[in-house]
Amino acid sequence: MQKIIKINSLNEFLTNLIKDYTVIAPVKERTTKFKAILDPKQIYLDKITKIPLKKFFLPEEELLLAFKENKITEVRPKTKPTIIFGARKCDLNAINVLDKVMKDPNYMHRRKNTILIGMYCTHPDKYCFCESMELINFYDLFFYPYNGHYYISIGSKKGEALVKHLPSAKKEITLKFKNTKKIKNKDIAADYQNTIWETDANKCLSCSACTVVCPTCNCFDIKDKSLINKKQGRRTRSSASCQLKSFSRVAGGKAFRDSRLSRFKHFVYHKIVYFKNRHKIYMCVGCGRCLRACPTHIDWTKTINILSKTKKIQKK
């Protein structure tokens, strides 16, 4: 059963939530990102955020352990109950992907403490291709704007509790997702050795922008630091990128993914093939952030489409 709220009473609804929860929503500052808000007026929903939602669950640098003398203590993040508001369908599906991989206690602690509220995406742009990535309904609450009202779909008990006081909708309204760019044939497992990837790899600067802004890239580094001249230290986790040579370098000095080509293909294949083999869903959610961020405008979705086109011609 859907709940209903007037579009102009949304701010009031959110202000009430801010009293009891940390509310994270997209805002526009130097760049667009998810951030804790104090006033619903800060919310910016026009464009997809440049910085993905994962930053909240997997901070750039996170303390895991603290050392003192020979004692090791585990550090847990301190988080208030949190609501994420205004996440798009792609953002929410990205959390679903992360849930599948991350078995990390700090991640799970944050996830348990969070309620996800989604918002229907009215402005997909030319980089979006979510329609091709078989996204599912994954939310606690989801808002559909229609006729001056938000129709709220309920996905969980946690979500239901937030909208108990709102009137129920007489009619269910769910909107179809807008047309976006498409990847036609995602079955590229057999094309790993195709030379078409070399064109993209040649253009790649290995700057790691794609992996940093990807909402599902979760690879990390565990680093130790000891404080100068003291028997104290800490172990932190910080995000890493498979596009960098240092990522696969072992103690002896060898890098297992030495060439730019193998690194680039690792990114694309992990998103489209490898993850799907294991978890039955695509790791890529089609948000297009990697395409938007790439300084040399590498468009691997286009490459995949060219691949399927050439295959069709070959068949004929």
Binding site: V101, K103, D104, N218, C219, F220, A240, H266, Y269, V273
Partner: peptide, 11 residues
Amino acid sequence: FGNCGRCLIQD
């Protein structure tokens, strides 16, 4: 335990 992604050989 299969989280950091370093040791991936393809999938």
